[in-house]
Amino acid sequence: MSLIKKGAEANLYLEDFSKVLHPAGAGKVIVKHRVSKEYRVPQLDLRLRESRTALEARLLADAKVAGVPTPAVYEVDRTGMRLVLEFVEGERVKSVLDKLKPAQRHKLCRLIGMQIARLHKAGMVHGDLTTSNMILTKNGKVYFVDFGLGEYDRSLEARGVDLHLLKRALQSTHFRIADKAYAAIIAGYRDELGKSADDIIRRAEEIERRGRYVPREERTWT
């Protein structure tokens, strides 16, 4: 198996469908293996890997039903901590977003916003919305991947955190265009979710203000 990405919590391998699943199958699959972390105490290590593997498989499937492109889940191995997933060909949004023309970027960001809204409407949050976790395919679809920190959570707070995290990811990785990109994402989000989006957007702003390093109430005297 060839290692294509050594992520923070899992290794991704690219493998032939025929070798992993069925000899009659063609094409490639991704094997996502949640490796044990030596730095963690074994009980915690097991708990995190097991729950994230099982939950991720369910979230990937449910997101697809909700109208958000995700890789198909072919197999869930809860003892080996492996998922076998469809291999999605495309480019990470991380590496294309800064290069796009403003109009195209706007369109892409709106679509991302709409898809986040669909996830939220279906009772899910992604938990790690960054542009590294979005794959743009040739036909213009945006696949959301890596639901390892996702949850079933309909609360205002969880949805607000989801939006806030994406904003922070844009600010750290795409700082030149972060504000415009986020505004377009929010526009798409509101389009899809309607009026109920307003409370969530307000909550995301509140979470930002709640943060530890946010200027507020600073006295004028120094």
């Binding site: 938990g127 960054t130 995290l165 990811a169």
Partner: peptide
């Protein structure tokens, strides 16, 4: 003995 406690990582935060 490890006692399970809330483990909260939200994205990178």
């Amino acid at each position: 003995n490890y006692i399970p406690l809330p483990y909260v990582v939200k994205g990178m935060d």
